[in-house]
Computed example of a mutant assay.
Amino acid sequence: MENLVDNSELRAEGNLMNIWSLRVLQKVKVFLWRAARGCLPTKHRLQTRSVHVCDRCVQCESSYENDWYVFFGCAKLEEVRSAADLWHIIQDNLETADDFVALFFKLLESLHHQQLFDFVMTLWCIWKRRNNKLWNDVETQPRILVNMAHDVLFQWQQVRVHQRRREHGEYHNSVMTDHRQKEWTKPVVGEVKCNVDATIFKEQGC
């Protein structure tokens, strides 16, 4: 069939299985696939589709917004890269990469384990941060963004662990053990116990 029909233009650059085989949330994989296939609605891409929008970056408003600039070029990413401790890994590949997709797949193949998880989750959170600024005019602080990347993946991994335990009949015992460990106990005589809680305010981005 390939000899009869020239489908070279339809072939995707890079190995897409490196995306679908990642042990991350499905919505993160879909996002990564869209990024690899050039489907993210950046300002530059919208203009190439005859959508009349300003081409300035949503975050810094100082340069035109394409895939490369959103994830690697924007000046406001410096604090994110510093908080995520990823810049020293990415920097060595920036000058040799031909474009965003080439760099994207090169990092997918070269990073391993936790570094790989941190990289893809940070990309996903950068895009969410960009959209939150665009649609809600809320700018998420870099440290909060990095913590969100870690927390979302950790919570998903915990759910997967409980699912596997449930499948193997270990879930009930695990829940009972966790319940006993987290059960509140009153302080001993002469001591005071302080219970602390936290709340996330979406509107304030914290």
Rank of each mutant, 00 (worst) to 15 (best):
91 Q>L: 08
137 D>M: 08
206 C>V: 09
93 N>D: 10
59 Q>C: 09
139 E>H: 08
85 D>T: 09
24 V>E: 01
176 M>W: 02
113 H>C: 15
163 Q>G: 10
83 A>I: 01
82 S>F: 04
59 Q>S: 15
89 I>H: 07
121 M>T: 14
109 E>T: 13
201 F>R: 06
6 D>F: 04
197 D>M: 13
20 W>N: 03
93 N>L: 10
173 N>V: 06
74 C>S: 02
185 T>Q: 12
154 F>E: 10
114 Q>D: 12
204 Q>F: 15
124 W>H: 07
132 N>S: 11
87 W>M: 05
166 R>S: 14
84 A>Q: 04
52 H>V: 13
17 M>C: 09
174 S>Q: 09
168 H>I: 05
75 A>D: 12
69 Y>L: 05
45 R>T: 05
21 S>V: 01
72 F>W: 08
179 H>A: 15
99 D>I: 04
5 V>D: 06
197 D>V: 14
156 W>Q: 01
17 M>P: 00
23 R>N: 14
38 G>K: 04
145 L>G: 02
142 P>Q: 03
187 P>D: 04
193 K>Q: 03
165 R>D: 15
145 L>V: 04
28 V>K: 07
79 E>K: 05
57 C>T: 03
55 D>S: 11
166 R>E: 15
170 E>I: 00
40 L>E: 01
45 R>G: 00
142 P>Y: 02
198 A>V: 08
178 D>I: 07
19 I>F: 07
149 A>R: 00
68 W>R: 03
73 G>Y: 08
169 G>P: 04
142 P>D: 09
85 D>H: 11
46 L>N: 07
146 V>Q: 02
59 Q>M: 13
157 Q>K: 08
20 W>M: 00
77 L>H: 04
154 F>K: 13
18 N>Q: 14
70 V>M: 03
28 V>E: 01
160 R>E: 15
172 H>L: 13
122 T>E: 02
141 Q>Y: 08
154 F>M: 11
24 V>C: 06
147 N>M: 10
58 V>H: 01
18 N>L: 14
35 A>N: 02
24 V>W: 02
60 C>P: 00
